[in-house]
Simulated scan of single mutants.
Amino acid sequence: MSNQLVVLAGDACCTPIARERMPAETAAVLAPAFKALGDPVRLQLMSMIASAPEGEICVCDLTPAFELSGPTISHHLRTLREAGLVDADRRGTWVYYRARAGVLQQLATLLTAESA
């Protein structure tokens, strides 16, 4: 006798982890954010920005944390801005970054499994 599991029509093998399917419009908005976070440097930058004690962080504090050039860090930060993950505010020669809480909450909600 075979050890294969037989699933009858209409029987679900697993409990869904989300309540409902994401609308196409939401997917179109969130996909660039996930793509931007697919790079390890951008993921670290996002973590630093989101966890900044005052809610924002200067690029002058971000750059030294990496063994990358200033222009390379700026490129990664621009990608995060274009993906809608962060806002930037120029103050003199420095740029301050803060996380966009609403977008992060949408990403977190999508990735958080419902408890059974």
Rank of each mutant, 00 (worst) to 15 (best):
H76P: 09
T109I: 13
L30H: 05
A24Y: 00
Y97W: 03
L111W: 06
L8G: 07
E20N: 13
L111T: 12
A50G: 12
S74N: 10
R98A: 09
R21P: 08
A50T: 15
L45V: 00
G38T: 01
M46F: 14
A83K: 02
A65Q: 10
K35D: 12
S51F: 05
T26V: 15
A113K: 11
A52T: 01
E114D: 12
L110W: 07
P53M: 08
M1E: 10
A9T: 09
E56S: 10
L37Y: 03
T72W: 10
T15F: 08
G70R: 13
L85C: 09
S47C: 11
L68P: 00
A27M: 08
P16K: 05
E54P: 00
L80W: 05
C60T: 14
Q106D: 12
M1D: 14
L77I: 03
G92P: 01
M1N: 13
G84L: 05
A36N: 03
R81W: 00
T112W: 04
R78K: 14
I57F: 03
P53E: 15
F66R: 04
L110Q: 08
C58I: 03
Y97N: 00
T63N: 05
Q44H: 06
A9L: 09
V95M: 04
A12P: 02
N3T: 14
P71T: 02
V29M: 08
V41Q: 00
L111C: 15
L85Q: 07
Q105I: 08
A24W: 04
P71Q: 02
M48F: 11
R90F: 02
A113R: 14
S51I: 02
S47H: 07
R21L: 15
T93Q: 12
G102P: 00
V95P: 00
V6W: 07
G92C: 04
I17C: 12
E54C: 03
P71Y: 03
A50Y: 10
H75K: 07
I49W: 01
L77H: 07
A12R: 04
Q4G: 10
